[in-house]
Simulated scan of single mutants.
Amino acid sequence: MSTDNLSELHGELRAVARDLLAKADVGVPIDWQLVAGSGWLGLEADDEFDGAGATFAETAVVLREAGQALASGPYPAVATLSLGLLEALAPSAARDELLRDTVSGVVVPIAVVEGESALDELDQPRFRVTRCDAGWQVNGQADLVLGAPVADRLLIPAIDTEEPGGGIVVVVVEPTIGGLEVADEPVVDFTRSFGRVIADDVVVPVESVWRFVSDGGEALRQLHDRAALGVACDSLGLSEAVMAATVEYVGVREQFGRKIGSFQAVKHACADMLVQVTVAQKLVDAAVTALAAGRPDAAVTASMAKSFASSMAVDVAGKAMQLHGGMGYTWESGIHVYLKRAILNRSLYGSPAQHRAGLAARYR
């Protein structure tokens, strides 16, 4: 597809996403069947699963709009983690059926991946599986799992203790199975839901343990890159929304008989916001292109985008709060909601400091 056609496609996708996400109030999840009907869940899925056969570049467009709209619901978790994990698993009748049901919106699967984990431990799942008379027994715990409270299927990466070297598998279970607990975890950002997943001697049949197509550790690292870049897209989107709202506000708010946007200090603050958002746009676009194309530098560009965009979003939202003055703390402006979302984004799937340390390590 040519660049012009791709730009046109992204423009149409952006317009539809913006219109659809605007239908839900902040903090209220959009109807899941509307999400499924929009085709967003099948953007990266192949035709055989009723998908569009597109790439992460198209998913990134929706994630960016979700950040602008402060959208709630499990879409980011399903799009970046669950679908990415399912695609990395070996094809089977059960996997293909779950993938097809996910695309159609019949099932909401959530990958049990911690939102806060050390970057050097990405290929070490928090769960273990061992053989038992009835099949497999699962034990472990993961905190800050995005979308866990609304899942009707859980995809749990686990270490197979029976395999030499500890191979990695995925255990597919319903959250109501005996011995499994999914507890809500309160966070500063009320627009999203997180949960703690605890498996205490959970017994599952043999057919519930699925294998990866290739190396499981590498698949989990790539999955984390998707998640980190998804958060970067969200951070960029909310920053763009905050900047637009701030420029509009300083253009009408008057002080000392003048629009405050005419004050030199306010102009400088808005210019700084524009520079930061523009740099983030370039980094995110480069990372999305690399990941969508499967390039070897995808992990590096994702870390660069995540470290800058998530840090930038906190700075921009904080500056917007200052420029709105007392109005920024009220429900009328909603700026404080953007700030809370940005603060949580900063720590999800690797903090800026963690990603920068990983990038610096490449040059030692």
Rank of each mutant, 00 (worst) to 15 (best):
M1E: 03
T3F: 14
N5S: 03
E8R: 15
E8L: 06
L9G: 12
H10K: 09
G11Y: 13
E12Y: 11
R14F: 01
V16M: 15
D25I: 03
V26P: 04
G27M: 11
D31H: 00
S38F: 12
G39T: 02
G39D: 04
D46N: 07
D47P: 00
G51E: 07
E58C: 10
E58A: 03
A60Q: 03
V62F: 07
L63F: 12
G67C: 05
Q68Y: 00
A69D: 05
L70G: 08
G73K: 08
V78F: 04
T80E: 08
L81W: 00
S82Y: 10
G84P: 05
L85W: 09
A88I: 07
L89A: 02
A90G: 07
P91R: 07
R95C: 14
R95N: 05
E97Y: 08
L98H: 10
R100C: 13
V107W: 11
V108S: 05
I110N: 02
A111D: 04
A111W: 00
V113Q: 06
G115W: 02
S117Y: 08
D123Y: 04
P125K: 12
F127I: 04
F127R: 08
F127V: 03
V129A: 10
D133I: 10
D133S: 09
Q137S: 09
G140A: 11
D143G: 12
A148F: 14
P149L: 05
I156G: 09
E162Q: 12
G166Q: 14
I168F: 06
V169R: 13
I177S: 06
I177K: 02
L180W: 13
L180G: 01
F190D: 10
T191H: 03
R192C: 08
S193G: 02
F194K: 00
A199S: 11
A199H: 06
D201C: 11
E207S: 04
E207I: 05
E207M: 07
R211M: 08
F212N: 03
G217I: 00
Q222C: 15
Q222P: 03
L223I: 08
H224N: 11
H224K: 10
A227M: 06
C233Y: 09
S235K: 04
L236N: 01
G237L: 01
G237V: 11
G237E: 13
E240A: 01
A241D: 00
A245L: 02
I260Q: 01
A269C: 00
V284L: 01
D285K: 04
A286R: 15
L291I: 05
D297S: 09
T301Q: 07
T301V: 14
S303G: 09
S303E: 15
F308Y: 15
S311D: 15
M312G: 08
V314K: 07
V314G: 06
A317Q: 01
G325I: 00
G326P: 13
G326N: 12
Y329H: 13
T330R: 01
L344C: 04
N345C: 11
S347D: 09
Y349Q: 08
G350D: 08
L359V: 15
A361Q: 15
A361P: 14
R364H: 13
